[in-house]
Structure formats: structure tokens, C-alpha cells
Lab assay of single mutants.
Amino acid sequence: NARWTTEEQLLAVQAIRKYGRDFQAISDVIGNKSVVQVKNFFVNYRRRFNIDEVLQEWEAEHGK
């Protein structure tokens, strides 16, 4: 399903906090979204969920 429920959106943001840009890991956490759908989520929801800021926090924690 290409549509993202609110629950899936929140799950994705939590997974980004945990896995950074590991699209496969994020896809696995959500369970019903492909890697391509996760990559599209990054692009389409970047502003709404401040994904750049979430990634900066992840990179700071993981030394990337």
C-alpha cells in the first residue's frame, strides 16, 4: 500500500532516529513498506517531520 497511515509515519520517524539512512532496516521495522517507499517517504515527508534534523541527531550520535 502506497499510502502511509499516521502510525506508519510515526514508526518511520522513530526508525530513522534509530537507523539513520538504512532504508532496508526502516522498511523491516515498518513491515509493509518497500525500500523504495521508504526512500520516497524521506523525500515527501522531509519537511513535515524535520527529517534533516533527525538525521543530524543520528549522525552526531553515531559519528557519521
Results as ranks from 00 to 15, higher is better:
N40G: 08
T6H: 14
I51G: 05
A15M: 11
E7L: 10
V36Q: 15
Q37L: 02
I16F: 04
V54G: 05
I26H: 01
T5I: 00
R46K: 04
Q9S: 11
A15K: 02
E53R: 13
R47D: 14
N40D: 14
L55N: 01
Q14I: 05
E8G: 04
T6V: 13
E8A: 02
I26E: 00
A60I: 15
R46E: 13
E61G: 11
Q14C: 07
A12F: 13
L55I: 06
V29T: 09
N1P: 14
F49L: 14
I51F: 06
V29D: 06
K39E: 11
G20F: 00
R48D: 15
R21D: 12
G20Q: 00
E61Q: 08
A15Y: 03
D52Q: 05
R46H: 06
A15W: 02
F42V: 07
E53Y: 09
A60Y: 13
A2F: 15
N44H: 09
Q14T: 11
Y19N: 02
K64R: 11
T6G: 08
V43Y: 06
N32F: 07
I51S: 05
V54Y: 07
Q14R: 14
D52R: 04
R48N: 12
V54K: 08
Q37H: 06
F49S: 05
L10R: 12
R17E: 05
F49Q: 10
R46M: 01
I51D: 08
I51N: 10
K33L: 06
D22M: 07
A2D: 15
T5W: 01
D28Y: 15
G20A: 00
N44C: 10
Q14K: 11
R21M: 15
T6D: 08
V13A: 05
K18S: 08
K39H: 05
V54S: 06
H62P: 09
T5K: 06
E8S: 04
E7H: 08
K18E: 09
Q37W: 02
N40S: 13
A60V: 09
L55K: 03
R3W: 05
G20K: 02
A12C: 15
F49V: 11
K33T: 00
Y19S: 02
R47L: 14
E7P: 04
W58R: 11
Q24L: 04
T6C: 09
V36P: 14
G20I: 03
F42K: 03
N32S: 13
I30F: 11
S34Y: 07
E53I: 12
D28Q: 14
T5G: 01
V54D: 04
E8K: 11
L55F: 08
K33I: 04
V29F: 07
F41Q: 02
H62M: 10
D28G: 10
F42M: 12
D22W: 04
I16T: 07
L11I: 11
N1E: 13
H62K: 10
L55H: 01
H62N: 14
I26S: 03
R46L: 05
I16C: 05
K39D: 03
N44F: 09
R17F: 10
S34G: 06
L10N: 07
F49G: 06
G20H: 00
A60G: 10
R3N: 12
W58A: 07
V38D: 03
F49R: 09
K39S: 08
G31L: 03
Q24F: 08
D22N: 13
R48C: 10
R21C: 10
W4Q: 04
T5D: 05
V36D: 15
A2K: 13
Q14Y: 11
A12T: 14
R47V: 13
N44S: 12
W4G: 03
V38G: 01
R17K: 12
V13Y: 04
V29K: 04
A15R: 02
A60T: 09
K33D: 03
K18A: 05
V43W: 08
S27F: 01
H62T: 11
L10C: 11
E7K: 10
R3T: 14
N1W: 09
R47C: 12
A2W: 10
S34M: 01
D22Q: 05
Q14S: 14
I16S: 00
A12S: 01
F42C: 07
Q14F: 04
W58E: 10
A25M: 15
A60M: 13
I26G: 04
Q24C: 01
V43R: 12
K39C: 02
R21A: 12
S34H: 06
H62E: 11
L55Y: 09
N32I: 10
R17Q: 04
H62W: 08
R47E: 15
I26M: 00
I16N: 11
K64M: 15
N40T: 09
F42W: 04
I51V: 06
K64S: 11
F49K: 05
R48H: 14
F41A: 02
R3H: 11
W4S: 00
R47S: 14
E61S: 12
Q24T: 10
Q56D: 06
